[in-house]
Nucleic acid binder design. Structure first.
Lengths: 189, 189
DNA sequence: TTGCATAAACTAATGATATTAGTTATAATG
DNA sequence: CATTATAACTAATATCATTAGTTTATGCAA
């Protein structure tokens, strides 16, 4: 309506996050986003570089949030406690921001050619490596373990999100058992 | 060109599988598929019910294939051997058919209202439960373990597929360590 | 205050895509 | 050989992303 809506990159991004979490990243179209913001589609191009630019911004935002969430979750904890807390925080993040998390996955395709994304992804790996320090693993074993840890939490969170778990069985307990079984296996190595 | 191309549902489906594995499920458009088959887009509607119908058919096909692959993989094996073999087979399937596997995930959204899909998904859970029998778990624990096992293999396979693993580190070994660590944890419970 | 520059939002147009309706020609069947 | 079923077609519509060019509000400098 009005010729000045007061939009900027940040407000567009936040609306996109909301939309993504509500309807899934696939359904985040510029048309839907523009309508949500009471604006015509082309107006969005003043703030973001088309759909690819929006997705990249979402991915970046999601990775930053995820990293902060993980960092926050392990404050004052160490060893298995820290890993369990981080796993729960990761899961909680995906539950709270399913669409934003999807965006961070799509972004992996771009990370090959995007230094900023790549750096952020690497910094998350580094964070996880620090969480594992208490386990006193060999450097290479630690890297394998980061992959394992990520696979577990990512796998559980995405299967759950895609409605892959349809049995009547407490999900939190499934997750807790999964992660503690893995940690138990790590200790007995 | 010719007024009879000799298409049927099966040939359309197989072309779609090829396309999906090459370019990803998101890029499987009716336009691209029609071109691959030397046909105009609307002609596809004689064989599949639009894009939703195609995706459902892909999901069904993918789940059947995955189930057969898993069943095949455990022939003559039991206990940890069987689980490791099944895990490797699952991973190999996703590597061989990345797009088809994506299709099976999208399908979870539809499974809520699609009896055939649901039944197939349930039968895969049953198959996994039988693989776990040697572990002599309580019924409820067995269900939690199926979730855990699926989360692990799905998580690893999808992170790998999305280029989530960028470190120079042998992927097969990462997977083997992950799964055997989990199995070790299961035994020491 | 006035005027100018910046940029936010617009309209219009183009090119994909999916889908539906209705048509044509081929193949199979009696 | 005639009929019928249907595979593939053309044409039309709707949605979406994108670009080009236009309008207008805002902020800053004179």
């Amino acid at each position: 309506m009005a010729y000045r809506q007061g939009l900027d990159k940040q407000s567009v991004l936040l609306a996109a996050v909301e939309l993504a979490d509500q309807v899934g990243i696939e359904q985040v179209t510029l048309a839907a986003l523009a309508e949500k913001l009471n604006v015509k589609t082309p107006s969005l191009y003043n703030h973001i570089k088309g759909l690819p630019g929006l997705r990249r911004a979402l991915a970046l935002h999601g990775l930053v949030q995820l990293k902060e969430t993980l960092k926050e979750s392990v404050v004052g904890k160490s060893g298995d406690d820290a890993l369990m807390a981080a796993g729960l925080a990761y899961l909680a993040f995906v539950r709270r921001h399913p669409g934003l998390y999807e965006a961070t996955l799509i972004a992996n395709d771009m990370a090959a050619t995007d230094a900023e994304l790549q750096e952020l992804a690497t910094s998350i790996v580094s964070l996880m490596l620090r969480m594992l320090e208490a386990l006193q693993l060999e450097p290479e074993a630690a890297l394998h373990t980061v992959r394992g840890f990520r696979s577990i939490v990512h796998g559980f969170a995405t299967l759950e999100g895609r409605y892959g778990f349809r049995m009547a069985l407490d999900r939190d307990e499934s997750f807790h058992r999964l992660l503690s079984t893995y940690l138990k296996g790590l200790r007995s190595s």
